[in-house]
Design a protein around this nucleic acid. Sequence first.
RNA 1: GGUCUGUUGGUGAAGCGGUUAACACAUCACCCUCUCAAGGUGACAUUCACGGGUUCAAACCCCGUACAGACUACCA
Length: 555
Amino acid sequence: MDDKLKILADLMFPDVTKTILDYEKMYPERDLKEGAIVSRFAPSPTGFVHMGSLLSAFEDNKVAKDTNGVFILRIEDTDQKRSVENGIVGILNDLKNFDIIPDEGMIDENNSVGNYGPYIQSERKEIYHTFAKSLVLRGLAYPCFCTSSELDETREIQELNKERIGYYGSFAKCRNIPVDEAINRIKNGEEFVVRLKSPGDFNKKIILHDLVRGDIEFPENDLDIVLIKSTDKLPTYHFAHLVDDHLMRVTHVMRGEEWIASFPIHDQLFSIFNFKKPNYAHLGLVMKIDESGTRRKLSKRKDPEASVEYYHQEGIPKEAVKLYLMTVANSNFEEWLDNNPSDDFSDFKFDFKKVSASGSLFDVLKLLNISKNYFGRQKASTIYDNLLVWTSEFDKEFHDLLVKYKDYSIKVFNIEREVEKPRKDYTSYKSIRNFVFYMYDELFKNPTYDTPKITDKKEIETILNTYYDEYLELNDKDLWFSKIKEMCDKLGYASNIKDYKKNPTNYKGNVSDVTGLIRVSLTSKMNTPDLFYIMELLGKDKIKERFTKYINTIK
RNA sequence: GGUCUGUUGGUGAAGCGGUUAACACAUCACCCUCUCAAGGUGACAUUCACGGGUUCAAACCCCGUACAGACUACCA
């Protein structure tokens, strides 16, 4: 009997030259400190990273770095339909944009670092075959010749009889084909997949532990799942997971909750081989609210914000996205951030217990808020440098101005910045232009003016001319303002707003109406940062120019 | 049909048998103020999907139900 199995196994896997033991020696247990976590991100080479995957890659990376472990990038290309040209580089770039750098695995389309490779599944065929072959030898796997139409048929029967769907028990037609017959059919060139001869019993319960959900009770797996596919002889996800994560000595498998259902399969596989089982953490999915008001998985196709590239284009700083990801990853992070306001959170330790089990809603508003606070912490020169990089790709016109007026630009960004309570108005690099455009003549050619309180042309002329001729003061902020108040008193506007509120009819208006007019004439906007600083930077000549320009636009 | 997961305010959530049900975002009000952005103060869940049960005591434990989601492929 054993001899026959050997003949069968050799026939099924003619390419196998090594044994499992050989591989155990090639990929020995890692020599890492106690508690070090080996994690892996294993995408298909689709060329881009979706927000949900980014979160899990981010967490994989974080956990490995926290513990001085290893973070591996492995490419799962066992389904050729999912592969795309230069798909690996695309993924690597998306990760790199958020400072997620794998310690081990693929570093470009064809090369890798690390001693546990290859890191592309299609190049590991012989390894999978070796493991599958050992199962055949032990009578725990068998060739299955069922065609897809046969499979469909049994499924239909199962549906009709309201029976559990799947390839198991008496529905596993090829499970008990005599070895002789199997040998002959293979010799005759019949196509086959290799299936696990599951030793499980659906009526028995097992309890599996998940790092975020705790213990989960399942029936044992009794499905004879496919291990190796027929046409390309590549493994299925389940089998590749077993072989790769064992041989790469992965300690923690973090994946989406869509994998919970196959947890029993994976546990069984590890048991059969008597391999040390990894820890599992099944993460909640990233959701969004649909137009119809229902929750659904964030979709790459429908939702621009699902694509990681979107944040790059929008100019959301990667630091802000990372901060946001961390708040989604661990619910206690925000509190920590409050006490440690910084963009470097390497001191914050990821905790599986603080991972939410339910899918979280993707909250763009929150991201923007985090981003705003991030900008609040930055120096003007840092903002300048980063903005220069962003505009070089997305806003050529602005970029050229930044280069031309470097020192001036830094001063502009510094308005109310490096002080105790800095401004928090920028939300993204993209948004900055709208906050500062009026500081550049080149961007102020045809402004659309907001409408100030004071609209009468004659009055406007009087105020602006009087101000420029008699009260303009740019050396000191306090003096600047007291001069404006002085003028208000002279022209019939209340210099003190409280006085104005008491007796509004005694005045033509109040200081804020006057400064509002000056503000609009200079910037076209009703709302801006501190007017004094703006005027200080603009300088006398430009102020005159803009007063005139404004007066000329009024009818 | 089967298996599994989840359900706390507009949103993200804390909570693990006794809490005024944290905190953050958003919203609103007031204060500060030359306008904004900020900042400060306060408001915002009589209640934790629903119905039962256990208990002196339940958002927390048990049982049902509903809803949402995942899986049930030679896709991952």
